[in-house]
Design a protein around this nucleic acid. Sequence first.
DNA 1: ACTCAGCGGAGACGACTTCTCCGCTTCTGC
DNA 2: GCAGAAGCGGAGAAGTCGTCTCCGCTGAGT
Lengths: 221, 221
Amino acid sequence: MTTSEVPRPLRRDAERNRQRILAAAVEVFATRGLAATLDDVAHHAGLGVGTVYRRFSDKDALVEALFEDRIRALVDLAETACAAADPWEGLVGYLEAASARMAADRGLRDAVLSPRHGQVGVTLARAELGPRVERLTARCRDAGVLRPDVAGTDVATLLHAVQAAAEIGGTASPEHWRRTLGVLLDGLRPARATHHRLPGAPLSDEELHEALTLRRRAGSR
Amino acid sequence: MTTSEVPRPLRRDAERNRQRILAAAVEVFATRGLAATLDDVAHHAGLGVGTVYRRFSDKDALVEALFEDRIRALVDLAETACAAADPWEGLVGYLEAASARMAADRGLRDAVLSPRHGQVGVTLARAELGPRVERLTARCRDAGVLRPDVAGTDVATLLHAVQAAAEIGGTASPEHWRRTLGVLLDGLRPARATHHRLPGAPLSDEELHEALTLRRRAGSR
DNA sequence: ACTCAGCGGAGACGACTTCTCCGCTTCTGC
DNA sequence: GCAGAAGCGGAGAAGTCGTCTCCGCTGAGT
């Protein structure tokens, strides 16, 4: 449903270029984030900017084409994790897999963690993430394998925190975030709650959503 | 030594305006970060931009005037924490205090966690932070109150991660970061032998420094 | 061969910042 | 009071950086 299939089959060379653009965009966005310019992408594909703009009306259109299914894959990941035999393993597996993908792709990181109006599909897909993380968390809490004072929104925040670590590791130490995640995971076990309860209350879903949406002047366009 | 004291005492109204600028800058930078424009600051002070530029040659000059001692205060905090009777309490106290200050002041956050050439004093002050955190960490490790596979650079990374949480809380939930810090602190206790060691190796000092310096296109100017 | 989809990429545009300039206002010392 | 230095305001010059358009040319497809 992205675009009606009716139009016209595209000339052979044009289709080839389309693929090149997509491939270049994947690479460029992955390393430089969504802040990369379309000029960058075009040049990386060995094409002129005009060509990119003929194929994709907008920078948003390109981003959407690239990231909607990537994000949907994260949703599937969460869904699968909900079905894991061991709730804790499910949560850990999801956090690791999701973190790994976002850490390896600055563009995905931006698409998931930052806002942007106009990217309808991406936004919708992202919205499906929250409830699943919530379920994942609730399951663990019920099973007593997660400290009871952690909410789903807290886990979302933690994911953000891990990505901050990933940003520090950058491409120089692409696995550096795992250390931060490791510390966090140990801190999430119930027995580990040595001290006091976590202070304050977790963010409500609305607060979290607003925080994520309101975020950053950055991004693209 | 900021500027030689010799010049001339400044007319009374000028001095008053200077104070207004400083006060406005504190406020504006705290809420909008270093990305705020000097026009913002000037307007917030009820003055024209020209006035600000007469007093401070540069945006950097203003930032420097504001944040050098703030960062130095963080250094002092770390120094004091090193002298705490209980090493763990020292570390926790430092992390909490430093996080609190940075969470409450987006400008400070930017000044400490991001780069910027030209801000000599700020950069120097920041450089003194690393070794102290290292000492703080080593003390805890030696005392066996910190998991042995955590290095000073890891703690620095964790601080970053906490600030990511702070950014989410924003001004709506200014204390939200404490929950993330809480989880992290519990995860830092010497392994009540849950899992495995933290994966990979900690960043070296140079790697961390480079990561911090190389960071972000953002900032001011 | 002919023609039209497709291409390239200079540059128009717009959004933003930083910082300057200069006529006018306000102090201050005498 | 008054002269004249110090200070002020804020329009706008100048620069930067992205997005996206335009149009003459190229080469695929029949």
